[in-house]
Amino acid sequence: TTYKLILNGKTLKGETTTEAVDAETAERVFKEYAKKNGVDGEWTYDDATKTFTVTE
């Protein structure tokens, strides 16, 4: 399944996708990605669109 991440950081904005077996796995991948890019904020997930959003 393809999951999407929307980054709404103070200095970094953008989108990325990952293939994962479930939302929990995708969330771990995306949180590591955000951490590596210095983005830390509020996380939300929309199951209907398989989209995570992190907003600083």
Rank of each mutant, 00 (worst) to 15 (best):
T16K: 15
A34M: 05
E27G: 10
D22W: 03
V21A: 06
K13N: 09
T11S: 14
Y3D: 01
L12E: 11
K31G: 05
T55D: 11
E27D: 10
R28A: 15
T55Y: 08
A48G: 13
E56L: 03
T49I: 04
A20D: 03
F30P: 00
E24S: 07
G14P: 10
K13F: 12
F30D: 00
E15S: 10
T55N: 04
D22Q: 04
E32V: 12
K50W: 07
A48C: 05
A20N: 03
T53G: 03
T44E: 14
T25C: 04
D47Q: 08
E15A: 06
F52R: 00
K13V: 14
K4I: 07
G38W: 07
K50Y: 08
K31Y: 09
Y33G: 02
G41A: 02
T25I: 11
T17I: 09
F30W: 02
T18F: 06
K4F: 06
F30I: 01
T49P: 02
T18R: 05
K4C: 03
T49E: 13
T16C: 05
E27Y: 08
T1N: 08
T55P: 01
G41E: 01
W43T: 02
A23M: 05
V54L: 15
F30C: 02
N37Q: 14
K36F: 12
T2N: 12
Y3R: 00
T18K: 04
K13S: 10
L12T: 13
F52T: 01
K31D: 03
A34T: 11
L12P: 03
D22F: 05
I6G: 02
G9P: 03
V21M: 12
W43Q: 01
L5H: 00
A23Q: 15
I6R: 11
G38C: 04
T16G: 05
L12Y: 09
E56R: 02
A26F: 01
T55M: 07
K50N: 15
R28H: 12
G14T: 08
D47T: 08
T44H: 14
V54H: 01
D40R: 11
K50F: 13
D40L: 14
G9A: 10
T2R: 08
T17S: 09
T11H: 12
Y33K: 02
T11D: 14
E19R: 10
Y33V: 05
T53F: 06
A48I: 13
E15K: 05
W43H: 01
T1M: 13
V54N: 02
D40A: 13
R28D: 10
K35P: 02
E15M: 05
D47S: 08
G14A: 11
Y3T: 00
K35S: 08
V21F: 08
T25Q: 12
K4M: 05
T11W: 13
T55H: 11
A48W: 09
T1I: 14
L5G: 01
F52E: 00
V54G: 01
T25R: 13
N8Q: 13
T16H: 15
N8Y: 09
A20T: 09
L12K: 07
I6K: 09
K50C: 03
E19K: 11
E42W: 08
A23N: 12
V21T: 09
G9Q: 06
A34Q: 02
E32N: 12
T18M: 07
Y3G: 00
V54D: 01
D40H: 10
E24Y: 11
D46R: 04
V39R: 02
E27F: 14
